[in-house]
Design a protein around this nucleic acid. Structure first.
Length: 135
DNA sequence: GCCAACGTTGGC
DNA sequence: GCCAACGTTGGC
């Protein structure tokens, strides 16, 4: 199973909003970057990802699961999205500062290319960040 | 609020 | 197809 990281600003689409959608999930819309889109196209149902708040917080706040693979956005059919549902809170949110301070995570896309909004996460990185977050 | 880094656009 | 200019993002 592959792992990912979804970046969002809390005032655009927050973890609370995502959680309120429950098991029905919600389309992950607004991706207008080709690299991010190609990452979404690689996702399989059941893949999991980190839900990351950028902006003021800059921390991983939860875990989401892909419940529908890449398809056109219902409101902007020229673009694509996947559907995500919230799976779990991070017991202890993992901050960008903590990630940057950890040598094992120095190659994370979040560190190397923070602007990319949908990122791949390696298995080792996934396990390590989960551990840091208390999962 | 600033600035560096990156992606996209458009002229050639 | 290249590259300069521009706009946007996001960390600080």
């Amino acid at each position: 199973m592959a792992h990912w990281l979804f970046k969002t600003e809390a005032d655009a689409w927050s973890w609370d909003q995502q959680k309120k959608k429950g098991a029905a999930g919600e389309e992950w819309t607004g991706v207008r970057n080709f690299q991010a889109r190609s990452n979404m196209r690689k996702m399989k149902k059941g893949d999991r990802g980190f839900f990351y708040h950028t902006g003021d917080e800059k921390q991983v706040v939860g875990i989401v699961e892909v419940i529908k693979e890449a398809h056109p956005e219902s409101k902007a059919p020229d673009w694509e999205c996947v559907d995500l549902k919230a799976v779990a809170d991070m017991p202890k949110p993992v901050t960008l500062a903590a990630i940057k301070a950890e040598p094992k995570l120095k190659d994370m896309v979040l560190v190397k290319n923070s602007r990319l909004s949908v990122q791949p996460v390696s298995e080792a990185e996934w396990a390590f960040v989960c551990k840091m977050g208390g999962l």
